[in-house]
Write a protein that binds this DNA or RNA. Sequence first.
DNA 1: ATGGCTGAGCTACTCAGA
Length: 258
Amino acid sequence: MKIISWNVNSVRARVNNIKDYIKLAKPDILLLQEIKTQNENFPFEEFSKIGYESYVNGQKSYNGVAIISKIEIKNIEKNFINDNFKQSRIITAELKLKKKEIELINIYVPNGNPVDTEKYEYKKDWLKKFISNIKKKIQRKSNILIAGDFNIIPEEIDVHDFKRYENDALGRLEIRKKYRELINLGFRDVYRFKNKTKQEYTFWDYFAGSWQKNYGMRIDHFLISNNLIENIKSININKKPRSKEKPSDHTPIELEII
DNA sequence: ATGGCTGAGCTACTCAGA
């Protein structure tokens, strides 16, 4: 089974890129972040025409997440955490592997910049609530896959110039500690587990030739319950979509799980 | 390097992203 996560930076501006990519990558499930549209304007038909059903937690202009699937998924929910700012940043579902049931959690974590503002506090609160609810979820369900745009640079190796980000909302120790706290509940960062020293990125700024200079960062992640790590066949950051015309600033991360 | 570029909403310009 192929599960892919991609922050598309507007689903409507990117619908042709996304469809072209789906035809090549053939995911079973595609997790989207930053769709930047409310549900009624989501291009459901564009995806149903190529065999995918869409489940959407949208919002006008900003944020928004979706699950696009060609296999059956159940119990779609959009209220995993209580978001006081009423931002659409999470959608969850259940899916069946050959032997196991998995809780699938698609997230778009707040950016948090500039630091020392209410935006930064919102990011910290959001992560605190998220971790707390994962803790509760683990009591009942042991097979969990968390995927999406975490807006967290886990370690120095995960960004081209760490010094520039060590006091940024993506790289601050306080935020990276939240990531570790989450992992310490019983998860593996799948990419880093499979690639101990590799330096690859999932995001490059649009400006200042960041893509051409490979000034990027790894902020899109798959976290999987420790007991499921043996089920991972491969994980791959696919840089091709970032090189296309009218690209998203993020590129997809592709997971194969048995 | 607190700028650079891109998208949404709207139709001039601001907000947000990372």
